[in-house]
Simulated scan of single mutants.
Amino acid sequence: MTDQRTVAVTGAAGFIGSRVVSELQQAHPDWTITALDNFYLGDVREIGDVTVEHVDVRDRDRLEEALDGADIVMHLAAVSGVDDCEENQDLAYEVNVQGTNNVAWFCRKTGAALVFPYSMAVLGDPVEFPITVDHRRDPMNWYGRTKLLSERAIETFAEGEFPAHLFLKSNLYGEHEIDGQTVSKGTVINFFVGRARDGEPLTVYEPGDQARNYVHVVDVARAYVRSAERLVDQLDAGETGVEKYEIASQEDPGITTVAEIVRDIAAEEIDFEPDIELLENPRDETLVSEFEVDTTRAREALGWSVEYSVEDSIRELLQT
């Protein structure tokens, strides 16, 4: 695919967004990339030859000016931490709901395609497995609710006007480098690795067997690049409306199991075997003991599959 295209990425200074820009540059050096962020948490400023512009998705006029000419918008900007969203509910609403509506309204007016991740947080406690995008929605926190509001809004905006891919994404882990800068985030696996590096115990909230599905940040970025490639074809064909995909791995260990993996690899790699401490759980969170996800849609329609594993990635993190 060599046709010239313009892709805009919001949240481009962040954990996922910066990797997406880098993967797009490698896969499609002929494409023009616009990178936007308000630098709320993201601290990447340059990605190859692309400078990240300071643009806040809440400012619709400035946003539309920055997005002008985009064929595809990858809308990755969000207040994504559960605690951050609970403590700053107005901000989460303004960014995650109003900001997403601003992006979707731009796409509706211009016909630009849209990529949007909406998180497993929309599900609450899953009641059947494997999980698919058809699972009922029952979010347990404000973060999940803001993502659900955006999912429904995009369905309405896109109908008859532009193609959109919505991604039900599992828990992230790993880190990556942008021009020599390590980009990471305090996800649970990264948190455990950091505790082990610092010689601290690994703290696990009760009951300890609660499971999550884990997917590496680079694998997620690769999925979004495949999405953009499919959206180019859909734009050329005049297709509109929403397609939904599951982005996950086949690894869904309980949290204590994850801590044990980190403990055992730390003993091998850094000669330190951290204790595992079980603590009272202060959160109202999903407590299922399995988290299998069916990724058939992404595999068949996007040609995507995971390349990273939890154990190999933990080992690599502890070796650096």
Results as ranks from 00 to 15, higher is better:
2 T>S: 15
3 D>N: 13
4 Q>M: 14
6 T>N: 07
6 T>M: 05
8 A>F: 03
15 F>D: 11
18 S>Y: 04
20 V>P: 01
22 S>P: 05
22 S>G: 00
23 E>S: 13
26 Q>A: 13
30 D>K: 10
34 T>P: 03
35 A>C: 04
39 F>T: 01
40 Y>L: 14
41 L>G: 07
43 D>H: 14
43 D>R: 14
46 E>S: 12
48 G>W: 03
49 D>V: 12
53 E>H: 13
53 E>Q: 15
57 V>L: 05
64 E>M: 10
68 D>H: 13
69 G>H: 04
69 G>V: 03
69 G>A: 04
70 A>D: 11
72 I>Q: 00
73 V>D: 03
74 M>E: 15
76 L>V: 04
79 V>Y: 05
80 S>N: 05
85 C>M: 12
85 C>D: 10
86 E>L: 11
88 N>T: 11
91 L>C: 06
91 L>K: 08
92 A>S: 14
96 N>L: 08
105 W>I: 11
110 T>V: 07
113 A>N: 09
113 A>D: 10
113 A>L: 07
117 P>L: 13
119 S>Q: 09
122 V>C: 04
124 G>H: 04
124 G>V: 14
128 E>S: 15
129 F>W: 12
130 P>D: 08
132 T>M: 11
134 D>Q: 15
135 H>G: 00
135 H>S: 10
139 P>M: 09
139 P>S: 06
139 P>K: 01
140 M>C: 04
141 N>I: 02
142 W>I: 08
142 W>T: 04
145 R>S: 08
146 T>A: 03
148 L>I: 05
148 L>V: 03
149 L>S: 12
149 L>T: 00
150 S>F: 12
153 A>L: 08
155 E>Y: 13
156 T>F: 14
158 A>L: 08
158 A>M: 08
164 A>V: 02
165 H>N: 13
167 F>P: 00
170 S>F: 10
172 L>C: 08
172 L>D: 00
176 H>M: 02
179 D>T: 06
180 G>C: 02
184 S>I: 07
185 K>I: 06
188 V>Y: 04
194 G>W: 12
195 R>T: 07
196 A>D: 08
201 P>W: 08
205 Y>T: 08
208 G>L: 01
212 R>N: 12
215 V>G: 06
218 V>P: 00
221 A>I: 05
226 R>P: 00
232 V>N: 05
233 D>Y: 05
233 D>I: 09
235 L>C: 11
235 L>V: 12
238 G>R: 12
239 E>M: 12
243 E>H: 13
248 A>C: 09
253 P>M: 04
253 P>D: 10
260 E>L: 09
260 E>Y: 03
261 I>G: 06
262 V>H: 02
267 A>I: 07
272 F>Y: 15
272 F>V: 01
273 E>R: 15
275 D>Y: 06
276 I>A: 01
277 E>T: 13
278 L>S: 10
281 N>A: 12
283 R>L: 13
286 T>M: 15
296 T>D: 14
302 L>I: 01
302 L>P: 08
305 S>N: 13
306 V>E: 12
306 V>D: 10
310 V>E: 01
310 V>Q: 07
312 D>Q: 11
314 I>G: 06
319 Q>E: 15
